[in-house]
Design a protein around this nucleic acid. Structure first.
Length: 1040
RNA sequence: GCGGGAAUGGCGGAAUGGUAGACGCGCUGGUCUCAAACACCAGUGACUUCACGGUCAUGCGAGUUCGAGUCUCGCUUCCCGCACCA
């Protein structure tokens, strides 16, 4: 009887469901193990083979732990608030909740297909009011607390008020917006309610503030720093500008040091920890106030990590946005300064970042006074000084800092050496701390370690500055001007925010007519009728919603107690499960989700609500499964230092008919009536400069009577929108051609890009069949070959293979719908079964490493499963297992496998586990072993990897309960021992032969036997033996 | 520029300092078949040899060691993250 995964798998999946096999209870009698995957955003594109990688690995660990007696929590849910569903709603008017629900159902189907042991009774969804009630609740707790530096933890704001009542802010050490002026209890008492409220906002852990934020006009919302990559939005790649706006903010900076220290107590990858350390960016230094010449009472504060170089400061630089710039600028410099400020403001982030080396700036005409030597130094403005870091002003020491050196050289400012070790200041600055100070007043002749404390001490005693720690970490912007997110549970009263009473939670997202900002530019929630609080709706609710990371910053607690409507999680549940033992997910969340989650967890810990400071003890980042895309053309023409890449999506295949591309040319309005057009060839242009190459292809195609479709990907489309000149060239190159712009925006991929004169649109689904298998390109390149011969593809990425055919190379890249390289797990499961898919995915390589998917190899794993099955069931359907006693060889094979698999699961090395199973099966086949005593433990070992097959065989072996509860086989080391040992014999480190020796032989005996060997004598060739090393059980090395 | 990681056959990848290339894919040959597919058996790093065998091989160059893919130092290349952070 053949191995038939389809029947086996559907049968046992139903059985597990009926038996509630995967239901988990909070059972304190058993040791707990909490393994967690980062929950997915349910995108409309569904899962591809890369997504379940981590889920499969953790499913194996979960099942393995269960078989080892642990009570295992392995839950799954959905991070179901997010932008794509809202974008889709804007286009279609379909409520995000509806499309999200559909996407979740599809995800669930796909996940169920793979046979995971998730306890679906514990599913959570961040967009479910029963869930986000508690996200809102935690937000309120943050509002009600401040960070006390004496206690070094969050404390209730009520306690702070009590202290203000008694002593004002005297003796209060708390994290606060700015160094608030001292006030007494009487001052405090004299304030009215509004003044008090506004003052308290400076202390609260979440608070609205006016600040520069990343505004993304295309998305119509602000973004946090981690959502902006390379000056454009991470999602969609839209331009981002700095804008002054009133936003809710999270005082994560209060936790900077604890977030840094906590990294030392968790088992996370070094790379993630380093990224977090860099992001927090702690630097130790000093702040120094410089007086301004001729401006009584005005001083400029700078932050420096090298106060020891202060005698070398020959000028000062302010950020163009610095508050004092207008006041300090002398009349003669007004024009120059204004022009520079204006110019600096007009530069995009992208420009500023790409022109780092260019020196620009303007002199204000004012002078600052160096407090140490009274020297007057000119004040400049330049945009190499960032307004957002430190004080937005620096003292410039050209001899010690390369940027200052470049600036000084450009503007011909003096460069004063301050160390006797400094040489060649004509060519570059010397940032080292070597040598003894010169030209440096009170520290002349000293070394760094001696000088630094003296200077800081002098600053502090003279009240001019102090030692200071500065962080790169900014407070996290917590508002989004979007609809599909958690409403902020607050209302406004006379410019002051107030919380709702707790009993009114959850504040449920209201229905609105359109998912767009209002005419006056207010967020979508302003469209909701009666979105107001209080009797007669006196007060307006907050109109922005929470960001995507809100719900994911605490969700792991909800799995512990998912139905609780009185608490976010009961005390008993959290005391039992405590924290996540093993967290698995992508490394792309290094400074977003993983940092915010740690922040919220520290806060919940301060409140005594959770028992552990860190929420995840161990973290593993799975690598990405990449796809392969064909590449025929790669000319080395620079544009933004990239290449011109054209991918042939559909070359001229004999066997493939012409393709039908659905298009619609509707302006603005979206229609789903496709006008079908036929093309013979499609190319995707990823980036370019020389459009004449494309033009050549187009002409060639035209003269062949082929219709050509040109696709641009999203990044390029963005370039086109930004660079008019490029757009013109493209228009010339592709005269009268339709252009199709693609996007990676999820989920409903039909995102639209508008070019100047034509709106086109396609459905990515219609392309899915066009994926080009690389082997087909190699076998059938007739027309391309011709084209190559005609030099059309000069510099093309073709190689002549040994058969004299042109072979197209391919590129390994992210698996994505827009790249036509997606492989769907459903197809794998349908063809080979879930067990096979699971094992093959594990077999590909180490979990942590990114690697390309290659479907071909799956047959090897399928063959293994079939052979494993064949040990139990004969071709004629006969049941093979016998009750014979196993031989030593059989036992050794089994126990070797037990040892290896147990060790390898513990170290998350699933690929080697699969090969151990293959080795065991191959050996049992050679030994013709069908003995129950061997096969039954093998089934238990295999159960975490291939649960369906294992369950089936387990029941055929006569068991009635699930194999999930079968005890993991115990290793008996005795069975690993052999009577004889084969020693490799090396001569001078080179392997020359083997000898077989009784396992009990003493080293001297082994040596004696080795010396007798013919091959040893021959290789020694009469040379005297200096030494003979025998490592018992391992190796013999003869040194001659 | 700074930080983190990696480099092993045609491919994915194995190797507590101890026989480099496990396991699988692919490829080659064989059995079965009218034939093909499937399946099964055997072989498969390169060079060399009729053969036994030998030589060279883990990005490059040194070093430690009886012995190095593995440890140390110095390079090269690639990937990832941060980046005018004072």
């Amino acid at each position: 009887m053949e191995y038939n995964p389809r029947d086996i798998e559907s049968k046992w999946r139903k059985w597990w469901l009926a038996q509630h096999t995967y239901r988990v209870s909070n059972d304190p009698s058993k040791p707990k193990f909490y393994i967690l995957n980062m929950f997915p955003y349910p995108s409309g594109a569904g899962l591809h083979v890369g997504h379940p990688l981590g889920y499969i690995a953790s499913d194996i660990v979960a099942r393995y732990k269960r078989q080892n007696g642990f009570n295992v929590l392995n839950p799954m849910g959905y991070d179901s608030f997010g932008l794509p569903a809202e974008q889709y709603a804007i286009q279609t008017g379909i409520h995000p909740a509806v499309s999200t629900e559909q996407n979740i159902q599809r995800y669930r189907e796909q996940l169920d297909n793979i046979g995971f042991c998730f306890d679906w009774d514990r599913e959570v969804r961040t967009s479910d009011p029963a869930f986000y009630k508690w996200t809102q609740w935690i937000f309120m707790k943050l509002f009600e607390h401040y960070y006390d530096l004496n206690a070094d933890k969050a404390l209730p704001i009520a306690g702070l008020i009590a202290r203000f009542d008694q002593n004002g802010n005297h003796g209060v050490r708390a994290v606060c917006d700015d160094d608030a002026p001292a006030f007494t209890a009487a001052d405090w008492a004299a304030m009215d309610d509004k003044q008090r409220s506004l003052l308290l906002l400076k202390y609260r852990l979440t608070f609205p503030e006016e600040s520069y934020v990343n505004w993304c006009a295309a998305l119509g919302t602000v973004l946090s720093n981690d959502e902006v990559k390379d000056g454009v939005s991470e999602r969609g790649g839209h331009p981002v500008e700095r804008k002054l706006m009133k936003q809710w903010s999270m005082r994560i900076t209060a936790y900077a040091d604890r977030l840094l220290e906590g990294l030392n107590e968790i088992d996370w990858s070094e790379s993630i920890k380093e990224q977090q350390r860099n992001w927090i960016g702690r630097s130790q230094g000093a702040s120094v106030r410089f007086a301004v010449d001729g401006h009584e009472g005005v001083s400029i504060e700078v932050f420096t990590t090298r106060v020891d170089t202060i005698y070398g400061a020959t000028f000062m630089v302010l950020a163009p946005e610095h508050d004092l710039v207008p006041r300090l600028t002398v009349p003669a410099q007004h024009a120059a300064v204004d022009a520079y400020v204006k110019w600096a403001a007009s530069r995009t982030e992208l420009e500023r970042m790409s022109e780092v080396k260019r020196v620009t700036g303007a002199a204000t005409g004012a002078f600052a006074v160096n407090p140490f030597n009274g020297q007057k130094i000119p004040i400049y403005i330049a945009d190499y000084v960032l307004a957002g870091y430190g004080t937005g002003a620096v003292m410039a020491v050209p001899s010690g800092d390369q940027r200052d050196w470049s600036f000084a050289t450009h503007f011909r400012l003096p460069i004063v050496p301050i160390s006797d070790a400094q040489q060649n200041l004509d060519t570059a600055a010397d940032p080292t701390k070597e040598g003894r100070y010169i030209n440096s007043g009170m520290i002349n002749g000293m070394a760094y370690d001696q000088a630094e404390p003296i200077l800081v001490n002098w600053l502090e005693t003279n009240g001019i500055g102090k030692g200071k720690v500065q962080y790169k970490l900014r407070n996290a912007v917590f508002s989004r001007q979007r609809y599909w997110g958690e409403p902020v549970p607050a209302y406004w009263n006379d410019g002051v925010p107030n919380l709702l009473p707790e009993k009114d939670l959850p504040l449920v997202l209201p229905a609105i007519d359109k998912y767009l900002p209002t005419e006056s530019g207010e967020p979508p929630l302003a469209r909701a009728d009666g979105w107001r609080y209080g009797p007669d709706g006196m007060h307006e609710y907050e109109l922005s919603t929470m960001p995507g990371w809100a719900g994911s910053s605490w969700y792991w607690y909800r799995y512990m107690d998912p139905q609780n409507d009185r608490e976010f999680c009961s005390k008993e549940a959290v005391d039992y499960w405590k924290c996540v033992d093993w967290y698995i997910g992508g490394a792309e969340h290094a400074v977003g989700h993983l940092l915010y989650s740690r922040f919220w967890n520290h806060f919940l810990y301060d409140l005594g609500l959770v028992p552990e400071r860190e929420f995840a003890k161990k973290l593993t980042n799975q690598g990405m499964i990449q796809g392969r895309s064909s590449l025929v053309f790669r000319a080395k023409e620079c544009f933004y230092e990239e290449y011109l890449w054209i991918k042939v999506l559909q070359p001229f295949f004999k066997d493939y008919g012409p393709m039908r591309i659905p298009t619609t040319k509707a302006e603005e309005t979206i229609t789903y009536d496709f006008a079908f057009e036929t093309y013979d060839l499609a190319i995707e242009v990823v980036s370019w400069k020389q459009t004449d190459k494309i033009e050549a292809i187009r002409k060639a195609a035209e003269s062949d009577g082929k219709r050509l479709l040109v696709l641009f990907n999203e990044e390029l489309a963005e370039c086109i929108n930004q660079h008019e000149r490029t757009a013109e060239k493209i228009n010339r190159a592709l005269l009268s051609r339709e252009r199709f712009f693609m996007t990676e925006l999820e989920p409903q991929v039909d995102q639209l890009f508008v070019s100047h004169d034509l709106t086109t649109k396609y459905s990515a689904d219609c392309f899915s069949k066009l994926h080009v298998d690389i082997s087909m390109v190699a076998d059938d390149v007739l027309d391309l070959e011709q084209a190559a011969q005609q030099q059309m593809f000069q510099g093309a990425n073709f190689k002549l293979n040994p058969e004299g055919k042109f072979v197209c190379s391919f590129e390994v890249e992210k698996m994505s719908k827009s790249k036509f390289n997606v492989v769907n797990p459903d197809d794998m499961v349908a063809q080979y079964g879930a067990d096979c898919y699971r094992m093959y995915e594990m077999f590909l390589g180490p979990i942590e490493v990114s690697k390309p998917w290659d479907t071909k190899g799956i047959t090897g794993v399928f063959g293994f499963l079939r052979r494993f099955w064949g040990q139990f069931v004969a071709e004629n359907g006969a049941w093979l297992p016998t009750d014979e006693a196993p031989t030593r060889d059989e036992l050794r094979a089994l126990h070797t496998c037990i040892k290896k698999v147990t060790e390898d699961i513990e170290r998350f090395s699933m690929n080697t586990c699969v090969s151990h199973f293959m080795i065991l099966t191959n050996e049992l086949r050679t030994l013709k072993c069908h003995k129950r005593a061997i096969l039954e433990p093998a089934v238990v070992l295999l159960a975490p990897f291939a649960p369906h097959l294992a369950e089936d065989l387990w029941h055929r072996l006569g068991h009635e309960t699930t194999v999930c509860d079968a005890t993991w086989p115990a290793l008996n080391e005795d069975f690993l021992k052999t009577d004889t040992v084969v020693y490799p014999v090396q001569i001078n480190g080179k392997h020359r032969g083997n000898i077989e020796v009784a396992a009990s032989a003493a080293p001297a005996e082994v040596e004696a036997l080795a010396m007798q060997q013919e091959f040893v004598r021959r290789n020694l060739d009469g040379a005297p033996v200096k030494k003979c090393i025998v490592i018992p059980g391992r190796i013999v090395n003869i040194v001659a």
